[in-house]
């Protein structure tokens, strides 16, 4: 970890040098910017299935499944100008078990950015759009392993975390499994729970991404999934082994909205 950090520092200083020589970036030209979602648990890297963690109720648990939607990215540059990534290319599904699905790849105007904001989940407008506008990660067919879509109550599952804990009761599958499937875009024909969360993070402390043609700045976010259980409201797995479309899902969503922090930037 330390080594990695030093390397980043070295890269950061190198790019800083480069910038001194570089002309002012042209905001009319777009370049690549990636946002990495590095899932961790407290001070440890998240390791699916084999890693064991403990919440504030002293309940030990492992995580077998973690996936969530991030969408509607906006970046504000150091001059205070906000760029909204076009919606059609602004939906990503982060899947812990698939290393190719840990990043949101964006194309933004060249510039230096001081803050980023995104939605955890899928906005209500897209959730109710014609199917032809819901391709890729938004295709209700989803992938074969696990669906991120509720058929009976039309809407996306924004956040899914499952795992094993002795604190969870034995279920029909013969496992002590906990299941958190959180969704709810506010309702179409009647108002209902809205678990769409917007996260805004300052990038100045951890390193301003300098977006330039020919290289890819990477905003490295740490996503501490321990916050799902130990966020603003501590959640006991024994008391809440399964949370899906229910009022309590709001508590889980509020908890996970605080799990994102900017760690560093690679320019």
């Amino acid at each position: 970890m330390k080594k990695y950090f030093l390397l980043c520092l070295a890269i950061a200083s190198l790019t800083a040098c480069q910038k001194d020589d570089a002309p002012t970036p042209d905001s009319n030209v777009k370049a690549a910017l990636s946002v990495e979602f590095d899932n961790i648990v407290g001070g440890q890297n998240l390791v699916l299935n084999t890693g064991t963690y403990t919440n504030s109720f002293a309940e030990s648990y492992s995580v077998s499944e973690l996936r969530y939607y991030v969408s509607n990215f906006k970046l504000t540059n150091t001059s205070g100008v906000t760029y909204t990534v076009p919606q059609d290319s602004s939906y990503f599904l982060i899947v812990e078990s698939d290393e190719t699905k840990h990043e949101a790849e964006l194309l933004v105007p060249q510039g230096d950015y001081s803050s980023i904001s995104f939605t955890v989940g899928v906005d209500s407008l897209r959730s109710t759009m014609d199917l032809s506008k819901r391709t890729g990660v938004l295709d209700p067919a989803g992938d074969m392993e696990t669906s991120m879509y509720w058929g009976w109550n039309s809407g996306y599952i924004f956040f899914k975390m499952e795992g094993i804990s002795a604190a969870a009761p034995l279920d029909n599958s013969g496992q002590h499994k906990f299941r958190y499937h959180i969704g709810g875009f506010g309702g179409y024909s009647a108002p209902t729970i809205n678990n769409i969360k917007t996260v805004t993070l300052d990038l100045t402390a951890g390193g301003v991404p300098k977006v330039r043609t020919g290289r890819e700045a990477n905003i490295h976010l740490m996503v501490d999934v321990a916050k799902v259980l130990d966020g603003n409201t501590p959640v006991s797995i024994a008391a809440h082994p399964s949370v899906m479309f229910s009022d309590f899902s709001v508590t889980i969503a509020n908890n996970y909205s605080s799990m994102f922090r900017h760690d560093h930037t690679e320019n």
Binding site: T128, W152, S154
Partner: peptide, 8 residues
């Protein structure tokens, strides 16, 4: 009434 679009 859980589904609001016939396509879904």
């Amino acid at each position: 009434g859980g589904v609001f679009d016939l396509d879904l």
